[in-house]
Write a protein that binds this DNA or RNA. Structure first.
Length: 753
DNA sequence: CATTTAAAAGTTTTT
DNA sequence: CTTTTAAATG
């Protein structure tokens, strides 16, 4: 690809200059040396980052090959690449863009031998490492009630992110808890190595170790990357900080962009200190402040600023806008979480008539569990929605089970995955047979995987005393694994997945169950089959290893497809970096937002305040805040500690007074009995025919529908999936008729009972 | 050994 | 209220 001609370059530079304000331009065109861009919410930092790269290439003739950019999601990375491709009109594949985790994985794959990894590694997600911790506690006879595995895992993870290895942890360990952690940490690391696996934290830690031990390899990278750009710098942890220092140590062209007010990941090791002390770390750093907000109306911005200024530890800054005041921030008091959901639904529909499509609106909450009340209300009112986060696709049980087969075939040393699938689907291999197999492997000094392969033999060795069912089961498993293993290198991942699903008869078995749950699983498995078949790795060959890596590094936002006529629901954390015309923040109550722990610890409280601030500043046109006077909390009855203290920090003149009332309800109020699901009055507002809503959503179980010939009826059963979907509808005369979901003329019947 | 049933325990946020 | 773990049954 030839570089743009001189005229073209000039035109591009001119274009950049015209599109930017003076501050942004300063950041984009600043020359060599460390650069700190303090970018307030909505001040166009993503544009600055992208344009800076474009400028480096166009004006200074820096090859994309020499630039690395770190983004917060893979999606953001993709968008940046796409935009750069448009701006520069050339291939951008030579530039390294991605999240810390995916870039690190890339580095590690290139130096497997140097990090002491034989063959190839698999990546353990949070669930995998938790399983590993549990298993170890079991082996070491450490009570999981006295020492909750989640907490242990958290301690190990935090230590790793702070670059505290087992030896240092051991030296510093004080008290019985830390000594127990030491024992588990030791074994945990040992198992990871013997399984040829890396956990999420290893992805950051191992490159640091690699660069420490092999200065020659570090040189390779620090000489290559003449320019480093990092987004969301306020959320980097210690390991990431060190990594950046190492990479920047040759050229010192480190450009970090962030906003200390938006730091929300302290709990997973992020250190705001990294951004606050950037200037003392790099005394010659140029600092550019972006304080002009282009996103939100003046009212929204004033409300958000009013809240965040209550934080003590922050760099002072003043966001401003010349936009119109806009609608006031609406505060809604609800009776309980159901009422809250109903009120939100009502407003969503109202705003829809005012030109904000469902896709323009988002509901943000503090914890995933809050989504349930909304799902119920939205479903029963026929409002289509999508949830981002929660249980991820690739973390679902049936999906992880199938992936575990691929992982074992890819890396036979992965004993965690192997023991996961050894009896899934049930093949008569219980604790006993597994133990049998383990000790056999140990005796012979072979891996568990090889032991399973030996089970294929017609006359297995005498030592391997297995009973009938287990023996047959392991034989079949051994054959499948041997087959997968032999094909792993030169067969497409879709082929291997299909072979696994077919051999194990997974779909057939689920179909026998005939339950709604099984139906959902089948749908997921078909989606996995489609995804693997469509997969093309970097070389277009669909390598299983590459697929597995990609799958373990997708972020929650990556998975989501935006657009379409769907209301979006997600946590405040997920909303980072996004923007919506209409934002609802729900559950704005003490104990929830701020979360309980924040009420005790001042630093936590500030983080909760920042989280609220992040949520508020996602809104472009309208912001609605809701809270409930009482809230159902699991089985423990009601709890709501009343309006959030943060709400009182919003200047009263940018709030809609009509709905604002701060009277608190008596704490001793009896929990109200579950009421029938409230319905929104009126005719159906949504015109499904014009939207992109799939029939599977419209024709959900229990939905009221209308047929042009037969009149109104109720969906009582569903058969098949996707375009094969058929539904049984019971009409008022009691007759049940089966229709194909598409082209049947069935229409949803709004909100009447 | 697997499946079913009963009791118990657990709930922030995520790469 | 849901999910996970333990015990009891087939």
């Amino acid at each position: 690809m030839s570089s743009p001609g001189l005229n073209q370059t000039d035109a591009l530079i001119e274009q950049l200059e015209a599109a930017l304000n003076p501050r942004q331009l300063e950041a984009v065109t600043y020359g060599d040396g460390p650069l700190l861009v303090l970018a307030g919410a909505g001040s166009g930092k993503t544009r600055v980052l992208t344009f800076r790269v474009a400028y480096l290439v166009a004006a200074s003739d820096i090859p994309l090959h020499d630039i690395m950019a770190v983004t917060f999601t893979n999606k953001a990375a993709g968008e940046m690449k796409e935009r750069l491709g448009e701006l520069l009109g050339s291939a951008v594949d030579r530039m390294w863009v991605g999240t810390f985790h995916s870039l690190c994985a890339r580095v590690l794959r290139r130096h497997l031998d140097a990090i002491g990894i034989r063959g190839d590694f698999v990546i353990y997600d949070a669930d995998d490492s938790l399983r590993l911790v549990k298993r170890i506690q079991n082996d070491l006879a450490i009570s999981t009630t006295d020492y909750p595995p989640r907490q242990i895992r958290g301690s190990i993870s935090r230590a790793k992110n702070d670059l505290i290895d087992v030896e240092i942890y051991d030296q510093r360990a004080r008290g019985s808890y830390q000594h127990v952690v030491t024992d588990i940490y030791k074994k945990y690391e040992k198992r990871l190595r013997s399984h040829n696996a890396l956990d999420f934290d290893d992805l950051l830690v191992m490159p640091v170790r690699l660069f420490e031990e092999r200065p020659d390899i570090l040189d390779l990278y620090r000489n290559r990357f003449r320019y480093l750009l990092v987004d969301e710098y306020q959320d980097t942890n210690h390991a990431q900080y060190i990594l950046l220092s190492m990479l920047a140590s040759a050229h010192r062209n480190l450009c970090v962009v962030g906003d200390d007010d938006q730091s929300i990941y302290r709990w997973r090791g992020a250190q705001v200190r990294n951004i606050l002390e950037f200037e003392s770390e790099y005394p010659d750093a140029k600092v550019v402040r972006l304080e002009r907000n282009y996103r939100s109306t003046a009212n929204i911005l004033r409300a958000a600023s009013g809240v965040v200024t209550n934080n003590v530890s922050r760099k002072s800054k003043r966001l401003w806008t010349d936009r119109e005041p806009g609608a006031p921030v609406v505060v809604v008091q609800a009776i309980d979480e159901r009422d809250e959901a109903t009120q939100v639904a009502r407003r969503v529909l109202d705003l829809r008539t005012k030109g904000h499509s469902l896709g323009d609106q988002v509901v943000l909450y503090r914890i995933n569990a809050q989504s349930r009340a909304f799902e119920e209300t939205l479903t029963s009112n026929g409002i289509p929605y999508r949830i981002i986060g929660g249980l991820r696709f690739y973390e679902r049980r049936e999906i992880k089970d199938i992936l575990a087969y691929l992982r074992v075939a890819f890396n036979p040393l992965d004993e965690l995955s192997l023991s996961r699938i050894i009896n899934v689907p049930p093949r008569g291999v219980g604790e006993r047979s597994l133990q049998q197999l383990r000790s056999f492997a140990e005796e012979r000094g072979i891996t568990l995987f090889d032991a399973v392969l030996i089970c294929r033999e017609d006359d297995p060795p005498m030592e391997l005393d297995l009973r009938g069912r287990a023996r047959a089961g392991l034989k079949a498993l051994g054959e499948l694994l041997a087959d997968l293993r032999s094909k792993i290198q030169d067969h497409h991942v879709g082929e291997l997945t299909a072979a696994t699903v077919k051999t194990l008869q997974i779909i057939e078995k689920l179909e026998e169950e005939r339950s709604l749950e099984a139906e959902g699983r089948i749908e997921n498995i078909k989606e996995l089959l489609a995804a693997t078949q469509a997969y093309q790795g970097s070389d277009g060959k669909g390598s299983t290893g590459e697929f597995l890596e990609e799958v373990s590094l997708v972020t929650q936002v990556d998975e989501a497809e935006f657009g379409g006529e769907l209301l979006t629901l997600m946590t405040l954390h997920c909303a980072k970096g996004l923007e919506f015309p209409v934002v609802f923040i729900v559950g704005v109550e003490d104990g929830l937002l701020p979360w309980h722990r924040g009420l005790k610890d001042p630093e936590e409280l500030e983080e909760e305040r920042r989280l609220f601030y992040v949520g508020m500043t996602r809104a472009k046109e309208r912001l609605v805040l809701t809270y409930a006077s009482s809230r159902y909390q699991g089985g423990f009855g009601m709890g709501s500690q009343g309006v959030s203290r943060f709400l009182k920090e919003i200047p009263s003149d940018c709030i809609s007074k009509g709905d604002f009332s701060v009277r608190s309800t008596p704490r001793w109020r009896k929990p109200s009995r579950p009421k029938p699901q409230p319905r929104i009055e009126g005719e159906a507002v949504l015109d499904y025919s014009s939207s992109q809503v799939p029939p599977s959503v419209i024709l959900a179980m229990g939905k009221r529908v209308k047929h042009p010939e037969y009149g109104t009826g109720l969906v009582v059963a569903r058969h098949g999936f996707g375009s094969d979907l058929e539904v049984d509808v019971r009409f008022s005369d009691g007759g049940i008729i089966r229709f194909p979901a598409e082209g049947s003329g069935l229409k949803p019947l709004g909100f009447e009972e």
